[in-house]
Amino acid sequence: LADYWKCTSCNEMNPPLPSHCNRCWALRE
């Protein structure tokens, strides 16, 4: 979970790649 990032649109936790959210497809900010 070290490099995971949280989507600013839906708060889904996503892996470093790809740089878009797996749930709502918003790009990582």
Rank of each mutant, 00 (worst) to 15 (best):
4 Y>W: 00
22 N>W: 13
22 N>L: 11
26 A>I: 06
23 R>S: 07
17 L>A: 14
7 C>S: 07
12 E>C: 04
17 L>G: 13
24 C>H: 01
18 P>L: 12
22 N>T: 12
22 N>C: 08
16 P>I: 01
26 A>W: 04
17 L>E: 15
20 H>A: 05
19 S>W: 08
15 P>G: 10
15 P>E: 04
26 A>T: 12
19 S>D: 14
19 S>L: 08
20 H>S: 11
15 P>D: 03
20 H>W: 07
24 C>D: 02
7 C>M: 02
25 W>L: 14
21 C>G: 02
25 W>M: 15
23 R>D: 14
2 A>F: 03
27 L>G: 12
17 L>M: 09
18 P>A: 14
22 N>E: 13
23 R>M: 06
27 L>T: 12
22 N>H: 07
7 C>L: 01
10 C>G: 00
24 C>S: 00
19 S>A: 08
29 E>S: 07
23 R>P: 02
20 H>F: 08
19 S>R: 10
19 S>Y: 10
19 S>K: 10
26 A>N: 06
1 L>N: 11
6 K>F: 06
26 A>C: 04
17 L>W: 07
21 C>W: 01
21 C>D: 01
22 N>P: 09
25 W>Y: 15
4 Y>F: 10
24 C>T: 01
23 R>K: 11
9 S>G: 06
24 C>I: 03
16 P>Q: 05
24 C>G: 01
28 R>V: 04
27 L>W: 07
20 H>Q: 13
26 A>M: 08
6 K>Q: 02
19 S>V: 08
15 P>Q: 04
17 L>V: 09
3 D>L: 04
26 A>G: 10
16 P>F: 01
29 E>G: 10
29 E>V: 09
27 L>E: 12
24 C>Q: 00
29 E>A: 07
8 T>Q: 07
19 S>T: 10
24 C>P: 00
20 H>N: 09
24 C>R: 00
24 C>N: 03
28 R>T: 04
23 R>E: 12
16 P>K: 02
22 N>V: 09
23 R>C: 04
27 L>P: 13
27 L>D: 11
29 E>L: 08
25 W>S: 15
18 P>C: 12
28 R>K: 10
15 P>S: 07
12 E>F: 05
4 Y>V: 06
2 A>L: 05
29 E>C: 08
17 L>C: 10
15 P>W: 03
17 L>N: 15
21 C>P: 01
2 A>W: 08
26 A>R: 11
24 C>E: 01
25 W>H: 15
29 E>Q: 14
18 P>T: 12
23 R>I: 02
22 N>A: 13
16 P>T: 03
28 R>W: 02
26 A>P: 05
18 P>W: 07
11 N>W: 04
15 P>V: 06
27 L>S: 13
2 A>K: 14
25 W>V: 12
25 W>E: 13
18 P>I: 09
23 R>T: 06
28 R>A: 08
15 P>M: 05
21 C>V: 01
17 L>H: 08
16 P>N: 00
24 C>A: 00
26 A>D: 11
19 S>E: 14
22 N>Y: 09
17 L>K: 13
19 S>G: 07
18 P>V: 13
15 P>L: 00
15 P>N: 11
25 W>C: 14
16 P>W: 02
16 P>M: 01
20 H>L: 09
17 L>F: 02
17 L>I: 11
18 P>M: 14
14 N>K: 07
28 R>G: 08
9 S>W: 06
18 P>H: 07
